[in-house]
Each structure stands twice: as C-alpha cells, then as structure tokens.
C-alpha cells in the first residue's frame, strides 16, 4: 500500500496503515546512515526546499541530511533571508518558489495552517515541519520509531507527555499518533498549559507529575519555550521545575525500563534535570539519529505516489 497523498500536513489525517508504512520504510533507510558511503541515488534529480520561517537547527538539518543521503538537491531558505521581511505574502513566496519547479517544499512556520495554505496552491509536495501549535508530524513519527525500536511495539504502552501542551505541536502530533497505534497516553502540566477539551483526543489529564509518571513505559518531556513566555502561565521557572521538572527521584515512579524522550533543545534545570537527560533512560540522541531515517522515508514515499495524486 503506497502513501496516497501529495502532502504530509499532519498525523491526524493519516491512517494506521500509512503510519506503519512510514515507520517500516524508515527501518530500511536507517541502514543507509551506517554505511561508509551514506548516500543512495533514490531521489537523484529531485529538488527539495527547506522553507523555514522560524529558527530551527535540528529539524532543518535533519531534513537536509535526509535529502542529501537520498541524492536530492536541497536548498535552505530562512525567513531572515527571504522576501518575507520585505512584506511579501506567504502565497507570493510560494508561487515564486513553485515557478522554479521544486518537488518538495518543507515548511516550518509560526502560524497554524500555513502549510495547508501552501499545499493548496503548490504542485510540489508539502511537508509540515511544524506549524504554530498545530502539528509536527515528522517529530511524532521519529518518536514512534524510537519507541518501537526500544519497546518492540506501541500498542498497550503507557506514555506520559509532560509540559506546555497548549503551545505544543509536538504534543498534538504525538497524541494523534500514539492513540492511533493503541498506546495509553496521559498528559501533565500546569492547568494554564492544558488546552480545553483535550480529553476528546483520547488522553487523560494530570496536574501532578507524580501521578502522571506512575507506571509509565515512556515519558516525553516538552520544552518550556522561554522565548514565548508570557508570565501569566506560571509564576517562575523555579516553581515550574519544583512542580513539573523531571528528576531521577520522581522517575522512580515510572517503570524500571522507562525511556525518556525530549524533542530538543533541552532547558536543563527547567523541564528536565541534567541527571535525567544524561541518564541511561534517555533516548534523546537516538531520536535525533532516527529523525534522519524517518525523514528519508517520508521524502521517498511522498515522491513515489505523487503523480497519480496530482492528476486526480
């Protein structure tokens, strides 16, 4: 079964089969990164554009390496050098890029729905690399890949996601993916960080970290975005760490073989203690490695079924 879509805009619209296809395909691509010659000719002659309207090192680099290992030509456009600063609209920027016949546009944007706007007008495939507080599908896919590698399967696992759920696209994409694959997902954070009616997405909400950690197989810690911090969400970083920071002591409540995940970059001593981040429980660097494999898989799969999709 191929991936029957032009774009990857989120996890929410994906079927379980599509998710499994991406994860299985990533397994094959992971091997490429272990070779001496870390390159296959799969996407030779394809043009990929990394269109980043928000600063990002990790995701942009990961897509860039993924593209290069597949022999695609990939170029980076960041907001500071694009015409956005000159007041050009997103649609005009997209039309201009489109006129140069790219095959895939990878977009990161601070506004939810920006990739959808692009996907509607572009012939190229669009990959959402994070849009506002909406979705970050490749992050959730690489998280799921990492969980599967460590735990064998996702079905039946108890997963806790802790932190600023309200502003987190990583949380939303992971909630969609993990619940689709049959994990039991709970979230925890200050009440000011829990979006309304989130229970309808099939998660359990906790306001105490200890209860959220109890018996968990997987704990995902979200980054506290200091830069977008409006003081009214919580009084101080110190109080946040005291109430929700992940420490080795607290981690004892989780299962003995718990894994700790974080989408990065880390704020040590804010949402996670250094001891936990550097502990054997941490799979944070595996997440980074797997990110490349998962993104190679997504690039490959989107390129395959594309023409059918566009004609219909």
């Amino acid at each position: 079964m191929p991936l029957k879509r032009k774009d990857l805009l989120g996890i929410e619209p994906l079927s379980v089969e599509e998710i499994n296809l991406i994860l299985d395909t990533a397994k094959a691509f992971k091997e490429v990164s272990t070779r001496d010659i870390k390159k296959v000719p799969t996407l030779r002659g394809k043009t990929l554009i990394n269109l980043f309207f928000e600063p990002s090192t990790r995701t942009r680099t990961s897509f860039e390496i993924a593209g290069k290992r597949l022999s695609a030509d990939i170029l980076n456009i960041s907001a500071s050098t694009s015409s956005v600063v000159k007041g050009e609209t997103l649609i005009d920027t997209a039309r201009n890029l489109e006129a140069m016949y790219p095959d895939i546009i990878i977009i990161r944007h601070s506004r939810a729905g920006a990739p959808h706007l692009l996907a509607n007008i572009c012939r190229a495939s669009v990959i959402n690399a994070g849009d506002g507080a909406h979705e970050h599908p490749t992050q959730a896919l690489l998280d799921a890949f990492t969980i599967k590698e460590n735990k064998g399967q996702i079905k039946g696992l108890k997963v806790a996601i802790i932190g600023d759920i309200l502003h987190s696209r990583v949380a939303r994409s992971n909630i969609h993916l993990l619940t689709k694959l049959g994990a039991e997902v709970s979230i925890a954070g200050p009440a000011t960080y829990i979006p309304v009616e989130i229970e309808k997405l099939g998660v359990k909400v906790y306001h105490h970290i200890d209860a959220a950690l109890e018996g968990r197989d997987v704990v995902m810690i979200l980054r506290i975005q200091r830069e977008r911090q409006d003081k009214s969400y919580f009084p101080s970083l110190r109080e946040y760490f005291n109430l929700f920071g992940l420490t080795l002591e607290r981690l004892k409540r989780a299962k003995k073989d718990v894994i700790i995940m974080h989408p990065g970059p880390l704020n040590r001593g804010v949402e996670i203690s250094s001891e936990v981040a550097d502990s054997p429980y941490s799979v944070i660097l595996e997440q980074v490695t797997n990110g490349v494999a998962v993104r190679m898989a997504v690039l490959y799969l989107l390129m395959g079924g594309k023409y059918e999709e566009v004609v219909s």
Binding site: K27, A28, V32, P41, T42
Partner: peptide
C-alpha cells in the same frame, strides 16, 4: 529499491526493505 531507475514513473512506489 533505492537504486531503481523507475521510481518516478507513473504508479505507486515499491516498498523499500532492509
């Protein structure tokens, strides 16, 4: 699969295995 010369031909892409 990663080395095939017909990846962009019309039709669904083949499954890549390890």
């Amino acid at each position: 699969t990663m080395y095939r010369d017909d990846l962009t031909a019309v039709g669904p892409q083949p499954i890549v295995r390890q």
